[in-house]
Nucleic acid binder design. Structure first.
Length: 433
DNA sequence: TCTGGGGTCCTAGGACCC
DNA sequence: TCTGGGGTCCTAGGACCC
């Protein structure tokens, strides 16, 4: 058996890089991409990081800084990012028979067996190919476990001397330990802010400290997750590559409103719209939901205003993927948790107790004919909406404005770029000089 | 005026049962 | 002196990730 070697390939500032792909003049300029409602920063270019802007910083607090330094902001354009991501992932798939797509901008590749090619040369080849074929900058980290691959990627990103590729498996032990000693423990995958603070009281502050910590004591104080992290840091691969994404166990759709919403009548269309989106995802993975949870809340950032959070899980008579039944359940739940007089900021729905459609339980009260009709109807809706745009045919309760939201609940997206690769009327145009 | 959205896993504690 | 013990299931909440 060859020594295991896992690579983590991660796109640099992915959303920003996607915007730059079609607007090359953004290269070298400070660029951010904002969350829904243009609320906070979710991606920063190197130039913006250098200004000290933190991930998640509210955009309205940065207006002055942005003016001073000419920061250019975009609303998030998920249609574009998802399409670019698919292209990147399909190119990366050619570099190994085993790929796990971990997030929109990251994947693991199993490189065990490619040692004869020199992992770091292979990493450079991957990097150059993505740059040339797609146009995006990526970094590559290689290690004996996923956690080490993540950490190697961190080094590849932070330290210019590695030229975007860091292979822990071929570094001398002393060099690797020197690197780990310089990395804060919070940079280790699975170690968040809470754990950092608790580890500090034990004198564990660097990645190297954690690697050397006694596993049993870690387990006793922090649980099995962190014990596993310690093992992974020591080169013992505990996490396997998940080549096939398992079906989701819950499906959530929620949004903040552009401005506070008070009336039940204004919440209802949003709920119908979110259940509709969630049900589409449910059918895409061929699952049925056994219950629907609904939640509403006021803004936690306005402590002076009256606060209220309500949530309720509504069981369904039988598991279903029929949007109409799911909407009925969610609306019934909304009626029960709604309290008048509050300034609602967010509403969401969650589909729970998901089971594969193939395991639909049989009951005495089944009506196979009705169920077959419902199934045909849902499939027809999905195929029309796939072809003609996602809100082409919808339930009346979803309303008629924008993304199916009432006028009051409309989302702010003032700085969105074009869907250069997926909509013919927005396609990128190249002009010859 | 303006602070995202969507997931996973683990643990503790209560209810219930024998 | 001494409240039984142990298993399972469920839920809420915490922590983490991108």
């Amino acid at each position: 058996m060859p020594e295991p070697a896992i690579a983590l390939i991660d796109c640099n500032n992915f959303y920003v890089s996607c915007e730059r792909l079609f607007q090359p003049w953004l290269e070298g300029r400070p660029v951010v991409v904002l969350s829904n409602n243009d609320g906070c920063v979710v991606a920063r270019s190197q130039e913006v990081r250098a200004l000290g802007v933190k991930m998640g910083a509210p955009w309205f607090q940065l207006k002055d800084l942005a003016r001073q330094h000419g920061i250019i902001a975009f609303s998030s354009n998920y249609t574009l990012y998802a399409d670019i991501s698919n292209r990147v992932m399909s190119v990366l798939a050619d570099f190994s028979p085993q790929q796990e797509i971990y997030s929109i901008d990251e994947c693991f590749l199993d490189l065990s067996g490619f040692k004869h090619l020199q992992y770091s040369d292979y990493g450079q080849h991957i990097r150059a190919t993505i740059k040339q074929w797609i146009g995006l900058p990526v970094c590559v980290g290689i290690g004996a476990s996923k956690t080490l691959a993540k950490l190697a990627n961190h080094v590849a990103k932070k330290r210019a001397e590695y030229a975007g590729v860091c292979d822990f498996t071929s570094l001398p032990m002393a060099v690797r330990e020197r690197l780990l000693a310089q990395i804060e423990v919070g940079a280790v995958w699975g170690v968040g802010a809470r754990t950092v603070a608790r580890l500090a009281t034990l004198g564990i502050v660097s990645a190297l400290d954690l690697q050397r910590a006694p596993p049993k004591a870690i387990r006793a104080q922090f649980g099995v997750m962190l014990e596993r992290t310690v093992a992974e840091l020591n080169g013992e691969a505990c996490l396997t590559l998940e080549m096939i994404a398992p079906p989701r166990q819950q499906i959530m759709v929620s949004r903040s409103f552009g401005a506070a919403v008070y009336a039940l009548e204004a919440l209802q269309p949003a709920v119908t719209a979110y259940v509709t989106r969630a049900a589409e995802k449910l059918r895409r993975q061929s699952s049925l939901a056994g219950s629907v949870q609904i939640f509403i809340r006021t803004s936690p950032f306005k402590p002076d205003a009256a606060q209220y959070q309500g949530s309720l899980t509504v069981p369904l008579v039988a598991p279903t993927d029929d949007t109409r039944q799911l909407v009925c359940a969610a609306q019934a739940g909304l009626q029960r948790i709604y309290r008048p007089g509050f300034a609602y900021q967010k509403v969401g729905v969650v589909l729970l107790e998901l089971i594969p459609e193939a395991q639909r339980p049989r009951t005495l009260f089944d009506d196979p004919a009705a169920q077959a009709r419902a199934s045909v109807l849902m499939r027809t809706l999905d195929s029309i909406n796939t072809k003609m745009g996602s809100h082409c045919v919808r339930l009346l309760g979803e309303g008629s404005v924008g993304e199916g939201r009432g006028e009051s609940g409309r989302m702010r997206r003032e700085r969105v770029s074009q869907r250069y690769t997926t909509h013919l009327d927005e396609i990128a145009i190249v002009r010859a000089q």
